[in-house]
Design a protein around this nucleic acid. Sequence first.
DNA 1: CGCAAGTTTGATACCATTCAACTCCGGTGG
DNA 2: CCACCGGAGTTGAATGGTATCAAACTTGCG
Lengths: 239, 239
Amino acid sequence: MAYLQHDVSGQFGDVRGGPRQLARAVQRTFEGFGSKASRFKAHDVVYYQGDEAKRLYQLVSGTIMLFKLLPDGRRQVVEMLRAGDIFGLASGEEYDCTAETLTEASLHEVNLKQVEGSTEMQRQLMKCLTNQMSSLHEHTVLLGRKSAVERVASFLMYLVPNRGGGVGCLGPDPALAEDTCDLQLHMTRQEIADYLGLTIETVSRVVSDLKRRGVIRIDRADKIHLNRVCSLCQMTGIH
Amino acid sequence: MAYLQHDVSGQFGDVRGGPRQLARAVQRTFEGFGSKASRFKAHDVVYYQGDEAKRLYQLVSGTIMLFKLLPDGRRQVVEMLRAGDIFGLASGEEYDCTAETLTEASLHEVNLKQVEGSTEMQRQLMKCLTNQMSSLHEHTVLLGRKSAVERVASFLMYLVPNRGGGVGCLGPDPALAEDTCDLQLHMTRQEIADYLGLTIETVSRVVSDLKRRGVIRIDRADKIHLNRVCSLCQMTGIH
DNA sequence: CGCAAGTTTGATACCATTCAACTCCGGTGG
DNA sequence: CCACCGGAGTTGAATGGTATCAAACTTGCG
């Protein structure tokens, strides 16, 4: 792992809000407070499930996934993180998930001790955790109760800026809202499948079906154009 | 809702550790700090999904479930809470889940303002949230990747004191560990199904099958005796 | 006793998985 | 330049696990 001193504060501007249920400003929680900046390439592991949990991280830019493995190799991606999100909290001595980058990513990292000493950090950290908890709840519903089509539709809507596929959906009013959107997934079909609790084939089939129905257009495997955002939103199970 | 002044501090003794991955002491986080005690009957709603989120709660004794509903009636129980757990945090203005008691329950409740003013409270709150987050991760794996049998087995193990069906499992050594256990579920088959992402019939079938195989004995629908804890543990998918 | 709610069991249907073959694409080297 | 290769993705056919629908059973209680 390379720890580069690198000024990343300006990159918060990249975030265009959104994928959480409610748009929220990205918190610079860990900036200052003696945090250390670090940078990772795509597909790097920040830490492994089982590693000693001694650091806390905040994602500054890029995307990271947290996943867990079962002994027989089954994998479940439990969280998809983006700018502002916190990770690395552990209830025991060890991390309960592996953290792996999907894209280039820059982080702020702090010692657990530092957090315990700072009221301000704790205050902001709580806000981040609350948001992530809410996302986890939403994802729990997806995994427990949604069909394959609903899962993929929810996933795509989750990537639409200022939508979140959920409560804040603007509804089918083409006059007010842009009804098309370009998405860059940064994920393989396998990663999507492991996130949605499906197999790679099922994800592929659903995506092909959405294409056949004219809801989306596939430019490259990981570049998808949404022709009709509202139609897609109707398929999430939330309406 | 009835807010009774009631001293419940002694009831922490009821908790025999356990259902989290790692045994942990129950935190009296909200005791003092100007918190108000309240008490609920079984099957009471503490708040509804969509209610204005103005209070934070800590469960002192009893069991509470948090669930979300899809518009067509599908329900997913997203968290099962027990003594020490915190609930009521919301990323927006409204609660994202409904909180309903499974048993009689006593709570401590505080205003959000009070929490923001207390460093000590925030510190302890973070510890609680970390534990709950870890449980959510575990449950995500269950919903995304486990079979019906594995889900039910995991659920039952989750109720075994000092086990948690997980990392802390003592392994198949009948000499060291008690290999039987009596469980009181406090949940209907429907609630279990909605927690495990299954149907009521599937839960019933799996339970009947475990009985047929001699792994469990059913005393009443919600009173289950585990004949062979280790065998059950082997069925969770964790081994 | 007889109802009502919860649970169990059976028959069948269907959705997602599994296994296998094929396509597509980018990179490499003859 | 193009043949070849490997990895990722797509598609097809068959299977199987869980859902669905329906009926019978159990339990508690007025």
